[in-house]
Write a protein that binds this DNA or RNA. Structure first.
Lengths: 157, 157
DNA sequence: CTTCGCGCCAAATATTATTTGGTAAATCAA
DNA sequence: TTGATTTACCAAATAATATTTGGCGCGAAG
């Protein structure tokens, strides 16, 4: 359940389409891939139960829901040991504004993506909930000025 | 069409639910927010047409589709002028493996998220298609070792 | 106070998903 | 190679779900 799954040309087509538009009807999907609805649905269900498709999500316009500030934050921990990493990731998991947390190579240890209402809210969040996580040594914020690309379609062959 | 939209408590509930699970049926959604199906659907449609909900996407398991390497890349351009930025973003837009491109504050100018099959494919991509974009001065890759959080639910009040 | 517009509901209808039963092609063991 | 078995497919019936309709009640504006 962790390794690559065998996917034929049609499966890949389905995945591309559903990544770009999860709301397509089964009949339309069937037509686009050149099969009838029944086997199309079977394939989609199989992709779901096998875990190739993890979930389906609505994508929002951040401005319109009043979330004006997005940032990436590069974090260095005080020590790179397992305990500290666990303390850090558990602290992170409780903070809704941190929507991504990746362990990365390079000068820092982690990179976070954070979303807040405005700069004031962002500052408050950082000061009161993030900066004071005990194992954090250093943080550098990169504020997103504009986003040119934010594709939900991965480059599958 | 660019500013915050008025959303009541029920709209916010709908948005939270659809971000977490876009495949919920209208009847279930109606029940969870405490309305009947008809006005529930009306609200969802209104959120869609007003652009609060931009789109719906399937989220895939990268391992299972054979995409083993994800990275963040911090890019510095040779000049921070408008022309160079345009040249850069247009070059970027043609490369499917670059799924995100944000203009950011800080030492670099842009941060990219890139997905590839493996390290070899990643190296090839960078050497042949990214590094040689003329306006690029410097790039630093951060390879994602593991992801602890990747939420599709934004922190709306 | 009354009228309008909005948001809601229940129930009818339309659309879509899902199941069913059966056929043909691909796979494999003998 | 052949016969058995599985797999993938299709058309059409059925079940589930979305969507429309008509009407009610409430709050705001005149």
């Amino acid at each position: 359940m962790k390794d690559k799954v065998k996917l034929d040309r049609i499966d890949l087509k389905i995945l591309k389409i559903l990544q770009a538009n999860a709301k397509i009807t089964n009949a339309q999907l069937a037509q686009e891939i050149g099969l009838s609805p029944a086997p199309t649905l079977e394939r989609v269900k199989k992709l779901e139960t096998s875990g190739v498709i993890k979930s389906y999500h609505a994508k929002l316009n951040t401005q319109k829901v009043g979330l004006g500030v997005s940032t990436f934050v590069m974090v260095t921990l005080k020590g790179h040991n397992k305990d500290n990493i666990e303390i850090f990731t558990e602290s992170i998991s409780e903070i809704d504004e941190i929507i991504e947390c990746h362990h990365v190579t390079g000068s820092g240890d982690f990179i976070l993506k954070i979303i807040a209402e405005d700069i004031a809210a962002y500052q408050k969040l950082m000061l009161e909930r993030v900066t004071n996580i005990e194992v954090v040594d250093n943080m550098q914020s990169l504020v997103i000025l504009s986003t040119f690309k934010d594709s939900k379609v991965m480059p599958i062959p």
